[in-house]
Structure formats: structure tokens, C-alpha cells
């Protein structure tokens, strides 16, 4: 119970975990644009490094859970924190899953949609990127979480709008595509959108946790 180096290690692990998730979504962003512009080698690199990041995030999360329970740290916040970590882990899981879907299904994305898809990915990733400082702030300055979290909601909304625009374009203006191709494209916009949706989920969780923490 009364160990001094325990908390330090857990803090380190937490920081590592956040870094991993952060890097993961950046790699995802690169991967999508590499796919769109046909840089197959780079895309494959991105996929393999994202896979590695995802599995190391899993390992980190389990290690943190272990430490929290074995040292019985923070009995009051433990459950919440573990849920937060799980949700964040889901973000990188989704990103990896998306990239591997690009790899497996090789969606036929018309070049005129490339820009739109890049923008969609960037918006979706921005939601996650603005989530990270809020998550970090929760642990040190919980009263600033609220100021940072609104950006996540903003980007999530923008992602939604962009995704709708792409879908509208695909289904209304691109009669040269087969229905199967259109549906395929719709799925891929949905996949990319999912990343920001998950970020929003984490943000919701975080805002409640922050209120709980502010004494």
C-alpha cells in the first residue's frame, strides 16, 4: 500500500499510453493520404507501424490496469480512469482497423474525391488531437478540461458535415460509379468518421470525470 515509486511508474505508463494513441492517429492520417495518392510502400509502412502502436497501446493499458489494482491506487477514480483508457484504446483500434480495411478492400476512390477524403481524415484526427491535451489536463488541472474539450465537439461536428458532403457527392453527382462502389465509398467515409465519434465519446466521459474531480 505504501509504496512511493508505484505512482511514478503509473504516471510514466499513462504518458506513454497517451503518446502512443497520439502517434497512432497521426500515422493513420498519413496512411490514408498515402493510400489516396497511391504511395503503396509508404502506406504499407504506415499500416505496419500502426499495427505495432496499437498492440503496444493494448499492452500499456493492461499494465496500467494491473498497476492500479495491484497497488490499489485511487480506489475512487480507478473505475473511471480504466474506462477512459479503454475508450482511448478503442480510438487507436478503430484507426488500425480502418487502415487495414483500406489494405484489404482496396476501395476505388475516384481522384476527384482525394481532396475531400484527406480533409475528412484531417478533421476526424483533429478531434482526437484536441482531445489529448484535455485528457492530460484531467490528471493535473481538472478545472481546465472544460476549456479544451469544446474543440473536440467542434471537430466532431465538422467531420460529420464533411462526411455528409462526400456521401452526397458520391450518391448524387457520380453516376459513373456502380452502386457497389458508391456503397463502398460510403462505408469508408463512415469508417473515418468513427474515429472522431469515438473521440467525442471520450470527451463526454472526460467532462463528467472532470466535474467529479473538481472539489
Amino acid at each position: 500500500m505504501l509504496k512511493f515509486n508505484g505512482p511514478k511508474k503509473v504516471i510514466e505508463l499513462l504518458e506513454n499510453f497517451f503518446d502512443t494513441v497520439d502517434q497512432g492517429v497521426l500515422v493513420f492520417k498519413n496512411g490514408v493520404s498515402n493510400y489516396l495518392y497511391g504511395n503503396t510502400d509508404n502506406f504499407n509502412d504506415n499500416l505496419s507501424s500502426l499495427t505495432k502502436l496499437e498492440s503496444s497501446a493494448d499492452i500499456l493499458r493492461r499494465e496500467i490496469e494491473n498497476q492500479l489494482y495491484s497497488q490499489s491506487l485511487m480506489p475512487q477514480f480507478r473505475g473511471d480512469i480504466l474506462r477512459l483508457l479503454e475508450e482511448m484504446d478503442t480510438i487507436i483500434d478503430i484507426a488500425k482497423e480502418n487502415l487495414s480495411q483500406f489494405d484489404v478492400e482496396i476501395p476505388n476512390i475516384p481522384p476527384e474525391l482525394n481532396q475531400d477524403f484527406v480533409k475528412l481524415t484531417e478533421l476526424s484526427i483533429s478531434a482526437v488531437e484536441s482531445l489529448m491535451p484535455a485528457v492530460r489536463a484531467f490528471f493535473r488541472t481538472p478545472d481546465t478540461v472544460k476549456d479544451q474539450i469544446h474543440r473536440v465537439y467542434f471537430y466532431e461536428k465538422e467531420t460529420d458535415k464533411m462526411a455528409t458532403a462526400i456521401k452526397r457527392k458520391v450518391f448524387r453527382d457520380m453516376s459513373n460509379l456502380k452502386l457497389s462502389e458508391k456503397i463502398h465509398l460510403r462505408y469508408f467515409t463512415l469508417h473515418i468518421e468513427n474515429v472522431s465519434d469515438e473521440a467525442e465519446k471520450v470527451a463526454d466521459l472526460l467532462s463528467i470525470m472532470a466535474i467529479k474531480r473538481t472539489i
Binding site: I11, L73, F139
Partner: peptide, 8 residues
């Protein structure tokens, strides 16, 4: 203070 340290 970090939440975990604070807890300690």
C-alpha cells in the same frame, strides 16, 4: 499535482 501522486 498529478492525480495519481495526489492520491498517494
Amino acid at each position: 499535482i498529478h492525480l495519481i501522486k495526489l492520491d498517494g
